[in-house]
Design a protein around this nucleic acid. Structure first.
Lengths: 336, 336
DNA sequence: CTGAAAGCGCTTACAG
DNA sequence: CTGAAAGCGCTTACAG
């Protein structure tokens, strides 16, 4: 009964100490001062378990991502965590390692810890796992799961905007022959990116040549192989857009290995703008995924729900092109 | 009183349910089965707050790192978290962003959450903050804080081994003129790396030329500038060792920019082996920091302390050279 | 403005 | 092998 000790020392009841602790109004200023002094003198820290047990809330949020080792996520985690800390919320986080079965397990762990809310920021989401959270009364927010946009709060990212900007940049440079490195089409997010790219292409009246689309595993290795395949085509595209930066880096390596100079012989554009994008040579032009904003939206959404406030339907976020040095006019072409 | 519901349904007391839940021996098998069924039927999940309040332990560990965005850390976090999960421990983690004052704040938060133990895996540690944890009765483990090696459990990493291997590799290639890109000497860890390098150099009877040592900020930008400074020297070193990979990447960029070919004109070796090290062109030879092992040692140490078991004084861990493509014999030299 | 007291959901000696 | 009951440290109607 540690609050009791404080109460004794300050000559008040535990109720009053509690009121001071929680900043409730209507405590005499002198009393507040006395209690504060006692707290300070005793170096008292309230027991969060006792509080949570009473109040039924833990002030902990869960954050589930696909993979900590993927450079896409640290910034998102960082942003989410900072926002949470500012509200006195602790976040426990886990990752699925891209395995849907592990999502189940992650959510289970969150429920067992009785977090107040969960942000599921994975690229793939299996609905059954979410239901478990909902059944346990824990609100959930997702990242860009269009299939479940109506049923669960969802932070949407409009990939098309980014691809359109990339395309317009390439067109302005004079490119017409544009290839694409897609991710595994079994993955929602990879499919979404490919669809957005082909949509943007079609909007500009360009033909989608299936032999200029290669598929990689979303990692550097896959980008390398996909690029090798693309370089073997005849005719070849003069520019390549990859569905993520890791594959763009792989593409760059494959180009190097084949003595194809980037951007002189071939332009490359990535997606995400992870830190490595600017560290390779040449620094990659890429489409910046607004992941800090995604984290912010996700947190705010949960925070509102937890507080019982209305949640507005947000406008989607837009990725934007960042131009660096991996793009140039096609060899021997003039700018239009 | 949720355990009560289970108890009623199973026709036992809450004590028995609790025993089953915690796998205590000495419950009749039939009773166990009955209780388990009731638990399953009711989809019952114990309240961790109530348990923690009673038992005085939360089964949560704190993990404090310098910076999530630094590619050095995700692997460490991942490894620590996996080990913890295997023991049913949840980890809450925060980062100091290299600011010692934030360490104080991080530890404070951990205390408020009453974690059972804290791993402080930052490059810099300020002892006052640690004392607060100790006073709160929370065990702590550090990463490579030689200054406090006697006072706090500490996972040591013997940098010298790594530098010695790097040096021997360069010597074998025929290099004699070896430069170094150090980090800010106000930082413990940077100082440690520089000392280890010069020690290794001296062990091989090589002279440490101060004009071949440049200082960077441990980030890409700093590596670039340091390399520019080194390239301006006359004579120039034929090989450069950097105190971390980010600076090695910067050095690589500066070399590119100055049309110095790596490894033909200049060899570069990094430190840490973060993912980007193998993604740049040419892939960096680097000294691999055993951070998964560090995480494992740290977790095991805390786990033992928490269980009241003896902690042995561990042998230090050793980083080892990973040879890739950024090293070659010096221009015009023969292998010895 | 303040206090007495119930109760959140568990675990754990203690008793049988 | 099992149960009755105390108590972990808070918060919060309720009463004054």
């Amino acid at each position: 009964m540690d609050i009791l000790q404080v109460a004794k020392r300050a000559n008040v009841s535990t109720a009053t100490v509690s009121r001071v602790l929680n900043g409730f109004p209507g405590v005499r200023e002198k009393t507040v001062a006395r209690v504060r002094r006692a707290i300070a003198e005793m170096n008292y820290v309230p027991n969060p378990n006792a509080r949570s047990l009473r109040v039924g809330r833990t002030r902990m949020f869960g954050l589930i991502v696909s993979d900590v080792n993927n450079p896409f996520f640290p910034e998102l985690i960082d942003a989410f965590e900072a926002l949470a800390a500012a509200e006195g919320i602790e976040v426990i986080f886990t990752h699925t390692n891209y395995d849907p079965r592990r999502l189940h397990n992650c959510i289970r762990r969150m429920i067992e810890r009785s977090v107040d809310a969960i942000a599921v920021m994975t690229s793939e989401v299996e609905e059954d796992s979410l239901k478990e959270a909902i059944n346990a009364g824990i609100p959930v927010v997702l990242m860009n799961q269009r299939a479940m946009a109506g049923k669960y709060p969802n932070v949407l990212v409009e990939y098309t905007t980014g691809f359109r900007e990339a395309l317009e940049h390439l067109l302005a440079l004079g490119h017409r022959d544009i290839g694409f490195i897609a991710g595994p089409q079994s993955l929602n997010s990879a499919r979404g990116r490919k669809d957005a790219f082909t949509a943007a292409l079609r909007d500009h009246g360009l033909h989608v040549r299936s032999e200029w689309i290669a598929i990689g595993d979303m990692r550097v290795e896959g980008g390398r192989k996909a690029m090798d395949a693309l370089l073997a085509r005849n005719p070849r595209p003069t520019a390549i857009v990859a569905s993520n930066d890791l594959m763009a880096v792989g593409a760059l390596q494959a180009a190097h290995a084949s003595r194809v100079r980037v951007p002189r012989d071939l332009s490359i554009i990535g997606f995400d703008d992870v830190p490595i994008a600017s560290m390779v040579h040449p620094p990659l032009s890429t489409i910046r995924h607004p992941r800090r904003e995604v984290a912010a939206r996700a947190f705010e959404c949960l925070w509102k729900i937890v507080q019982g406030r209305e949640i507005a339907v947000d406008q989607p976020l837009h990725p934007h092109l960042v131009i660096r040095n991996s793009t140039a006019p096609p060899a021997g072409a003039k700018r239009r």
